[in-house]
Design a protein around this nucleic acid. Sequence first.
DNA 1: GTGATAGTGGATATGTATATCCATTATGCA
DNA 2: TGCATAATGGATATACATATCCACTATCAC
Lengths: 145, 145
Amino acid sequence: MVLLRGMVGSVNFSASTTHALRATAWLAAHGDGDAVLGREMARKLKIPPDYLSKVLATLARSGVLTAVRGAKGGYRLARAPERIKLVEVVTPFEGTRARSGCLLRPDRPCRDSGACSAHRSWGGVNEAYRAFLEKTTVADIRDQA
Amino acid sequence: MVLLRGMVGSVNFSASTTHALRATAWLAAHGDGDAVLGREMARKLKIPPDYLSKVLATLARSGVLTAVRGAKGGYRLARAPERIKLVEVVTPFEGTRARSGCLLRPDRPCRDSGACSAHRSWGGVNEAYRAFLEKTTVADIRDQA
DNA sequence: GTGATAGTGGATATGTATATCCATTATGCA
DNA sequence: TGCATAATGGATATACATATCCACTATCAC
C-alpha cells in the first residue's frame, strides 16, 4: 500500500457529496434565476453528466434544488444560497455512511461517553465537524465554485 | 436512499482502520508482554480472523506491532502504548483515502487557501482532526477496548 | 531432525460506491 | 397536435474496500 505521509488527517467526503457541494456552489455563483442544464453544469464542473444527474435528482428530492422538466428546463436552487445549510446538501449522501461517532465501535452506540479523555476529545472533533455543516451555507462556498 | 437525520456529521474511519485501532487498544489492555495470537484477538474482538491478520501484518510492517512467528508466536506492541500515536496506527490504512483537505476539490491542492471564511473554518475542522491523531496515544484508548 | 504452531502472502469472492448507457416521462414551443 | 428538449429511473459496468480461502515459510518444543 502506498503511504502518503503528511497527507493523512483530512476529513473526506464521498464523490457524490463532493459533486453535490460543487454543484450547489456553482449554481449559487452562476445561476441567475433561470434553470441551468444539468449537462452544462457537468461540462463546466468536469463531472460525468449521467452521474451528476443522479446527484442533482437526489438534491431535488431533498428540497435543496428545484428541477424543471421539459424544454428550457434544468435545475435551480430551491432557496437563496444564504438559506441553504451545507448539512442539507451533505445529508442525503452521507446518510448511509453515518456512524455513532464512537472511535472504536462506530457500528453501535458507545457506552460510557464521558469516561476517558480520548473519547471526549474525539467527540470534540465530531462536534467541530457538525458545527461547520450547520453554520456554513451555500453562499459561503459560492466563491470556491 | 435511507436518510438518517441527526446521525450525519460524524467523522468515520474505514473498517480496516477501526480494526487496527481496536486491536492495538486491546493489546495495550490485555497484552502482558507475551505475544498474543492473532486468532485469539479476532475471536475476542469479533473480527474476521483472516481479515484481521492482514491488518496486523500491515501494522507490523509499519513498526506499530512486533510479529513473532512460529510456535508461541503472535503479536505485541512494538513500544509502550504511551509512545504510539494514533496517527501511526491510522496512516497505513487511510493513506489511499487521503485528500488535500479542500472542501470542494479534494482531488487536488486548493487555490487561495485563506480567501474565504468557509475555507478557513473547514481547515479548522481538519486541524482538530489532525491534532487529535497526533496528541492521542494507544494508552489513551486502552480502556475502550 | 521432526512435527506442530503461527505469521505471510497470493488468489479469489462479495458488497458498495462510482460511473455509464438507454428507454421513458414531462414540458415548452411552433 | 407534434416535435424537440430535458429530467427521471432502470439496468448494467467498473473500481475498490472488505472478507475468505489456502498454500507457504519461519520458529519453537520435543
